[in-house]
Design a protein around this nucleic acid. Structure first.
Lengths: 169, 169
DNA sequence: ATCTGATCGTTTAAGCTTGAACGATTTGAG
DNA sequence: CTCAAATCGTTCAAGCTTAAACGATCAGAT
C-alpha cells in the first residue's frame, strides 16, 4: 500500500476521539430508540414532545433550531404528531408567519408517561460509566457541541432543586 | 404542570451526559459530512471506502458489523460505490454465499485523496478540545460504545509507529 | 444422499432527513 | 404608500436507513 497516512500524532488523536464519540452516540441512541419504537413513538416525535413538555410551546422554527433539524423535517414530524392528536398548531396573531405548537392534553399524558421510562433506559445505558466519567463526558461533549442548547436538562435540574410545581405554561 | 420529573440525581446526571453526547456527535458529524458532500461522496460511502482502505477487502456482512449498519444498507451503499466504479464485488469460491468487496484502483485513488482532507476537518473540529480532553473523551466514549471496533485508528497508529509500507494486499 | 437449520446477500415497503423552490407574511427603506 | 429583502412554513425530489420476507448457499445430522 503505497499511501501513508501523513497525519501527525495530533490528527491521530483527534480521529480516534472522533470515531469513538460517534460510535458511542450511535450505539446508545440505538438502544434508547429501540425502546421508544415499542411505544409507537419515533425518535423525532419524542424529541418534539419532550421539548414541548420541558420548554413549553414554541414555533416550528425554534423547534428546528433546538433539535438541530431542518424546517421541512419539523413540518413532517409535527404533521404526524398532529395526526395522532398529540399536538396542535396555533397560528400567532401578532406575526402570522409563525405557528406555535402546543401539547394537547392527550399528548401531555403520553410524554408524561413515556419520558420517565426513557430516562430509566438512558440511566441504565449510562450506568456503564462511573458518576465521574459521566460528568467528564457531559463537560467535554458540551464543550464540543457548544452552541446547541441543552433542552430538558437545565429544566430538570431546576425542578429537582426547587422540587415544587412550576405551574406556568 | 402537575407532573414532576421523579428521577433522582443519578438519572439527571445520566440524561445530561447522554444529551450532550448525542448533540456533540450530531454537531461534529454534520460538519464533517458537509465537507464530504462537496466531494460527491456520501457518509456511508466514505465509511465503506475508509474501512476497505484501512482494513483491506472484506465481505458485506463484516462490513455491516464494522459500520453498525444493516445488511440492506450495505447492499445499497456497495451498489452505489460499484456504479461509480470505486469498488468491485468478488464472490468467494470457498463459500459462495459471501461476496468480498475490493477497492478498485480508481476507488483507492479517491479515498487516498479524500481521507487526509477528512482527517484535517476532524482535527480542526476536535481542536476545540485540549489534548487531554480528547484523550478522556476517547476513553469514555470507547467504554460506552464498547463492542464496536475502532476501524482505522488502530491501523493508523501502527502505520505511524512503524512508518514504513505494509505493502500487503 | 437428503433434510434441516443457519448464514449471507437482495429486495421491498415504510419512515426519516435534507436542500431547494415556493408562497405567505412581515419589516424597513425610499 | 410601495417595493425589496428577510423570515417562516410547506412541498417536492432525492437519498439514507431499517426490518422483514425471500432465495441461494453451506454445514451438520440422519
Amino acid at each position: 500500500m503505497p499511501t501513508h497516512f501523513q497525519g501527525d500524532a495530533e490528527t491521530v488523536r483527534a480521529l480516534s476521539a472522533y470515531i469513538n464519540l460517534v460510535r458511542a452516540s450511535d450505539s446508545t441512541l440505538a438502544k434508547t430508540t429501540a425502546h421508544l419504537e415499542g411505544l409507537g413513538v419515533t425518535n423525532g416525535q419524542f424529541a418534539v414532545l419532550e421539548a414541548l413538555l420541558h420548554l413549553g410551546p414554541m414555533c416550528q422554527h425554534t423547534l428546528g433550531k433546538k433539535l438541530l433539524r431542518s424546517g421541512g423535517n419539523v413540518t413532517l414530524v409535527v404533521d404526524n404528531l398532529e395526526r395522532h392528536g398529540w399536538v396542535r398548531r396555533e397560528r400567532q396573531a401578532e406575526d402570522r408567519r409563525m405557528i406555535q405548537i402546543h401539547l394537547t392534553p392527550k399528548g401531555r399524558r403520553l410524554i408524561t408517561r413515556v419520558f420517565p421510562e426513557h430516562a430509566k433506559v438512558v440511566a441504565k445505558v449510562m450506568s456503564q460509566l462511573s458518576a465521574a466519567e459521566q460528568e467528564q463526558l457531559r463537560k467535554i461533549a458540551r464543550k464540543l457541541g457548544r452552541g446547541a442548547d441543552e433542552l430538558c436538562t437545565e429544566r430538570l435540574k431546576r425542578e429537582k432543586e426547587h422540587d415544587h410545581d412550576q405551574t406556568k405554561q
